[in-house]
Amino acid sequence: MAQPGTLRVAVVGTGRMGADHVRRIQQVTSGARVTAVVDVDAERAEAVAAGVDGCTPYTDPAAAMAADDVDAVLIASPGPAHEAALLTAFAHDLPVLCEKPLTPDAASALRVLEAEQSLGRRRVQVGFMRRYDAEYLKLKALLDSGQLGRPLLLHHRHRNVASPPGWRSEMLVNDSVVHEMDVTRWLLGHEITAVTVLRPTPSANAPDGMQDPQFVVFETDGGAVVDVEIFVNCGFGYQVQAEAVCERGTARIGDGHAMVTNMAGRWGGTIAQDYLDRFADAYDREVQAWVDATRRGEVTGPGAWDGYAAAAVSEAGVRALDQGGRAEVELVERPPLYR
């Protein structure tokens, strides 16, 4: 919605991610403020709203979206709740920033895609924040420039200190590697056509029954081969790294060497401990870009097609994990709205 004044945002979901977005919009982002928060836990919604002047707590997303003081929606609730929230936002013609996943599976993502097409214009930006990270932006610009020639291989490493409670083997694919799925598509400009998941001996630090680490291989329609090491119980820190191997050179990001110290006979630095630390600046840029575009009456950044494609690749990845071997990605033809 284009307007000269401040964008009034409803934040749906006030867990760790949603609460951080409330803080970000109120303290970091220009041109927006939070006027509503929604959570099924009424006490949590009330506690978050109490810290924001003029903010109303809700337990029903539809009630918040119908409010006169809401111009846009940021969805940070659990993935299974996204489809209903997105369709409600469409009914009110509200622009949306939806944290990943767009929805948890390809079928529901396709329903969202079709509903947005019926509006005749894009309304959704999906929260793949790596596209706003300074290092990834530099790598994207370098690859797009053609200086290194055609990308042949792309290596990713994705490590977490420890997996959240209740995590299962398939969640390494559809909750963690989904970021590499999106950033691969974005960096290379390719669609992922097949996924293979290799299963080394699980780490002793992994919860019982969890296959961790995993080694995931993507094939793309542009002929590149991409690998992802996903290790969510590495124990020492949060690391996200990528290296592009091209015809005339290579480029690597994510080494975390912003500052290296030398003292007492040792050299070293620090390792981020979670994603909110490592990607804080990227989240700031992402939300600011969404606010700026929304105030101009535009939608930019990764959209519903990207969310659907990630869901389809995730499903192939889970099939490959469960069945072993290679699983092909099943994608519908890309609609004109997203070309």
Rank of each mutant, 00 (worst) to 15 (best):
A289N: 12
F218G: 01
G5E: 15
G317S: 09
G18K: 07
E315C: 02
R199N: 12
A304I: 07
A224K: 00
R185G: 08
R252A: 15
G254N: 05
L137A: 15
E170N: 08
P302Q: 08
G120D: 07
H92A: 15
L137D: 14
G325Y: 00
D69E: 04
C234V: 15
Q211F: 09
P57E: 04
E116R: 06
H155S: 14
T201R: 14
A251H: 13
R8S: 07
R319C: 05
L331V: 03
R326F: 07
A309R: 07
Y308G: 02
L187F: 04
R23I: 04
G265P: 03
C55T: 02
R248K: 10
R199H: 14
N160L: 12
L276H: 15
N160E: 13
L154M: 01
P164H: 06
K100T: 03
A272S: 14
V216H: 00
A194D: 02
E116K: 04
V12Q: 10
G189Y: 05
A109I: 01
V37I: 06
A304K: 03
L110R: 11
S314R: 00
E333I: 02
Q214A: 13
A224Q: 12
G189E: 08
E116G: 07
F128L: 05
P95A: 11
A85C: 14
P57H: 03
R157A: 11
P213F: 04
D133G: 09
P164V: 07
I230L: 05
R23H: 14
